[in-house]
Design a protein around this nucleic acid. Structure first.
Length: 228
DNA sequence: CCAGACGTTGTT
DNA sequence: GTCTGG
DNA sequence: CCAGACGTTGTT
DNA sequence: GTCTGG
């Protein structure tokens, strides 16, 4: 479902969207073809304050001994239907929720015959898409540098997305961000209701070039309508 | 009790 | 670390 | 998610 | 076919 994405926003746009214009402590370069293992800005709350920090796409759980071990388990997506029960995600879902700010994501339509056709999906209003995630901080050894990582929460496709694919990321309403990000809110009955498909009218989509298939390609035109 | 898994998607 | 399976 | 590798020995 | 890497 959600294994490729892009972001073209500036640091200032992120600051306005999430930090009430506080400056970011990281530089933001556009990524027109972001894949698992790559870094993305992440919004999370530390000591009652929202922060934006870089993190690796693909959760590295505490029990992993190596990055390679973690990458065997496709932890770049977490099924929302089961996230509260799965041993790899349950604790992060209670205590370490985050928002992945995206300009949009890619989804491949699989025709009855012929090659898969990639589409870019974005918010119709042009706003930064607040995708629900869970994060982790992992160390290879006690004195190693911590690796921050995240997984994107997925759900069933809404009526808009189902024309392309049967799954989609959880896209949060701005009004739900504080609840989602608050690490002190841990009751499933308060956070599980946010894990649902967004209204279909929020979204727009267009087919893009199959050049996006290869992560070696990373150009501004990848996000544009195919052939345009 | 210990050992071993721990995940998703898509396709058949 | 925690759950599942035997 | 898709693309690309998938291995060993011996020599530089 | 299956795993690894981006």
């Amino acid at each position: 479902m959600c294994g490729r994405a892009y972001h073209t926003y500036s640091a200032e746009e992120l600051s306005v969207a999430y930090l009430n214009r506080r400056p970011l402590k990281l530089t933001v370069a556009p990524n027109f073809n972001m894949a698992p293992t790559q870094e993305s800005p992440l919004v999370l709350v530390r000591e009652d304050l929202r922060q934006i920090e870089p993190a690796r796409w693909g959760l590295v759980p505490g029990w992993a001994k190596t990055l390679a071990e973690a990458s065997k388990y496709s932890l770049f997506n977490a099924r929302g239907e089961e996230i509260a029960e799965k041993r790899t995600y349950a604790k992060a879902f209670r205590e370490r929720r985050c928002v992945v700010p995206l300009s949009g994501f890619y989804e491949w339509l699989t025709p009855a015959s012929g090659p898969k056709r990639p589409h870019a999906i974005a918010r119709k209003d042009g706003a930064i898409m607040s995708v629900a995630g869970v994060w982790s901080s992992w160390k290879a050894s006690p004195d190693a540098e911590p690796v921050q990582s995240f997984s994107i929460v997925t759900t069933a496709a809404n009526t808009f997305m189902s024309a392309i694919h049967d799954r989609m990321p959880v896209i949060l309403d701005e009004r739900d961000l504080d609840t989602w990000l608050d690490p002190e809110i841990q009751e499933p009955e308060r956070i599980l209701p946010l894990v649902r498909p967004c209204p279909p009218e929020w979204l727009t989509a267009h087919e893009v070039s199959r050049d996006v298939n290869s992560v070696r390609n990373n150009r501004p035109d990848l996000v544009l309508p195919a052939g345009g």
